[in-house]
């Protein structure tokens, strides 16, 4: 039994060592840990927060950032009905074609369409943004150390630059950005987006909501994954106990 504990500890140690080494870099201020409804093994998304976050994304972020891996139909996960999704999609126009005459044409988006990007291509996006490319937001929380915490921190971390930092035109100071310099102007201001559910219209609330939403965009499978995970772990734990019993029983004539 002692030996088995040793081997389990060995594995645990091996993994502990590997968890933190994955995040080596990062010389900026560490983003504060936030409380998200989706963190932890039982975490789920808060549909109201997702809808508010989508609203912030749609009215603020989307003017520069694309979210090209998400289709309108995916918004069902936010609690919208089929009709509402159709209406949301119809607000956008997408290029389609060629038609019977070989012409490309514009039409209103359908639920099966992906979110159209604000710029035709990366070069156009850079040209319109002082040479900086606004990253696609479909995977942003998975693509940054700290995930949603980091995103919330960046959105609320704008400050006047300290004296030793010299900003070029088109640069801004953000204490959570690696190196402190960011090309994105302060995106959120208080009372910028009207909420229908009476939630506070503050920068902090906007930042939380849109981070919540973008975490969903990056990990839409999160709820299903965690729910399944709980069942799998329960099953495996029971199975392990059963197997331990079987093993004990079989070995009992030797002990």
């Amino acid at each position: 039994m002692k030996k088995s504990i040793v081997s389990v500890l060995f594995v645990a140690f091996a993994m502990l060592g590997s968890v933190n080494i994955a995040h080596a870099a990062g010389d900026a201020v560490k983003p504060p840990k936030m409380e998200w409804s989706f963190s932890g093994p039982f975490g789920t998304y808060d549909k109201a927060a997702l809808q508010r976050g989508f609203l912030v994304f749609k009215s603020v972020c989307a003017s520069c950032h694309s979210m090209k891996r998400i289709a309108f139909r995916n918004l069902e996960a936010l609690g919208y009905s089929e009709g509402q999704i159709k209406a949301i999609a119809a607000e956008y126009t997408v290029m389609d074609g060629p038609d019977d005459e070989g012409e490309m044409f514009e039409r209103a988006a359908r639920p099966s369409d992906m979110f159209p990007s604000p710029f035709a291509n990366d070069a156009a996006a850079k040209y319109a943004n002082n040479g900086a490319l606004p990253p696609d937001l479909s995977l942003i929380t998975k693509a940054r150390v700290g995930g949603a915490d980091y995103l919330h921190a960046i959105l609320t971390g704008y400050e006047d630059a300290p004296e030793h930092v010299h900003l070029m035109p088109g640069q801004y100071y953000n204490k959570y950005m690696s190196g402190g310099v960011i090309a994105m102007p302060t995106p959120l201001i208080d009372d910028q987006v009207m909420y229908e559910d009476g939630s506070p219209t503050t920068v902090d609330q906007y930042a939380s909501d849109v981070s919540h939403f973008l975490n969903w965009a990056a990990e839409p499978e999160l709820e299903v994954r965690k729910r399944m995970g709980i069942k799998v772990i329960i099953f495996l734990t029971i199975f392990a106990f059963v197997m331990y019993g079987v093993k004990r029983k079989i070995w009992s004539d030797l002990h």
Partner: peptide
């Protein structure tokens, strides 16, 4: 079981 904890 430990592996599954990471996967999920």
């Amino acid at each position: 079981t430990i592996y599954a904890a990471f996967v999920f």
